[in-house]
Every structure is written in structure tokens, then in C-alpha cells.
């Protein structure tokens, strides 16, 4: 029997993977992918919670609305983010995090 717990563990594992990726990877594009993974993990948790909180015989759709908005926002963020990363690449010919460490102090 698959319970809510199963989904939440998967979601947390996905979130942890995203977090770990941000810490480990140096390629900004890959880091950005990991961020998307974190958002998806949150979506999974939201959908799971909404499915297991059945009110009046139906899942709670307000949480699913939030998931929809999250996906949209993520798409918009990706668009802007990739534009910034492309601009960075054009000026530095690199997408390594070390190319953005000019400011220190």
C-alpha cells in the first residue's frame, strides 16, 4: 500500500538532490537545473498533501492551483535566468561559478 509517507519521502529525496546539486556543481546551468528539481519536489509534496486531504470526496484543489502557479513561475524564472546566464557567457565565455567571484570583501 502506497501511503502519503512514500510520496513525501520521494519528494524530500528529490529536494535533497536539488540542494546537493547546488552545493556540488560549478556549472551555473546545471545549478539552475537543480533549482528546478527543488521546485518540482515542492510540487510533489503539495500534490501529495492535497490528494491525501480529501474534503467532500475530492482532493483539495487550492494546493493544486498553487502547483500550477509554481510551474508557471518556474517557467518564467527559467526564461529570465537563462537570458542572464547567456549574457554572462557572452561577457565571460564561461558558465562556471568561478566566473562570478570578482566581488569579494
Amino acid at each position: 500500500m502506497i501511503t502519503l509517507n512514500h510520496y513525501l519521502i520521494v519528494s524530500s529525496a528529490l529536494f535533497a538532490l536539488g540542494l546537493a546539486g547546488i552545493i556540488v556543481r560549478r556549472n551555473i546551468l546545471v545549478i539552475y537545473m537543480c533549482l528546478e528539481m527543488m521546485l518540482s519536489a515542492a510540487n510533489l509534496a503539495l500534490v501529495a498533501f492535497s490528494r491525501f486531504r480529501v474534503t467532500d470526496g475530492l482532493p483539495d484543489y487550492s494546493a493544486q492551483a498553487l502547483v500550477f502557479f509554481t510551474i508557471t513561475v518556474a517557467a518564467a524564472e527559467v526564461a529570465v535566468g537563462l537570458a542572464i546566464i547567456v549574457a554572462l557567457y557572452r561577457s565571460k565565455q564561461s558558465v562556471d561559478v568561478e566566473s562570478v567571484t570578482k566581488m569579494q570583501g
Binding site: F15, G18, A41, F49, V73
Partner: peptide, 13 residues
Amino acid sequence: TGVLVYGIAWIYG
């Protein structure tokens, strides 16, 4: 943002 949404999810849960 990711952390924020995940937090919202758990609070909702």
C-alpha cells in the same frame, strides 16, 4: 523560492 514553496507545502500539509 524553492525553499519557500517547499515550506508552504509542509505548512499546508
